[in-house]
Computed example of a mutant assay.
Amino acid sequence: MDKNISPAKSGTMFGVLFGVIMVLEFVIMYVIGMKSLVNSSAGVIVNIANYLVLPLLFIYLGCNHYKKDINNGFISFSESLKTGVSITVLAALIYAIFNVIFNYIFPDFINEMLEITRDGMLAKNPEMTAKELEVGLGMVKKFMNPLIVFPVTIAMYAFIGLVYSLIVGAIVKNDKP
């Protein structure tokens, strides 16, 4: 057993891989065309992958890696939590940094997303007044600010990591006798 590797450090590889996958998904969606994908089944699939499937998968892989390869077949509940939260926070950090850089490189992206949002709001509620539309778009624009996106993304994925780590930890837990 290698006492030098903490559960959080053991998940680094999985966190980086998860973050890179989220960045690649974003880039592919941007290159293909966000307007055609945002309200389509492809957009739904990407969201399900980023918020459900991939976090569970990488947390499970990270906990299993720590259990089998580092800790001689043992992992406590707290070690599972440390591993899972570190994986999702690292992935969120990579994605949030990319998002901030992307918005500075392509400043028109926020305007494109606001246009897509406006079209979606009008499609769902055609009788929406101009004032209601302006208020709604103002809120969306505030939440697209990189200074808001960065901490919210990290906090959201930390919470997701905590919840999913509780689930995975209950499954893979094997305390030392």
Rank of each mutant, 00 (worst) to 15 (best):
A8D: 09
G19P: 01
V152N: 03
D108S: 11
L61C: 12
A158L: 07
E132H: 12
E134A: 13
I116Y: 14
A8Y: 09
S165A: 13
V140S: 03
F26R: 02
I32A: 15
K142M: 11
L137N: 15
L166V: 12
I32Y: 14
G43K: 02
L57K: 07
M1A: 08
L133K: 09
L114Q: 05
A96R: 02
I21D: 07
T83P: 00
V140D: 01
N111V: 10
K9S: 07
K131I: 13
I148S: 08
V135Q: 15
V100I: 14
M121R: 11
K173S: 09
S86Q: 09
I75Y: 03
M29G: 05
V31P: 06
K82Y: 06
M34N: 05
N71A: 12
S165Q: 04
I48G: 05
E115S: 10
V172W: 03
S165E: 10
F77D: 03
A42K: 06
P107N: 09
T117H: 13
F159P: 02
M128Y: 13
A130R: 11
V168A: 05
A91V: 08
I105C: 10
L24Q: 07
A123V: 12
L81V: 01
K176L: 14
S36K: 14
V140F: 03
L137Y: 11
I75F: 08
I154A: 11
M144V: 04
P126C: 11
K35E: 15
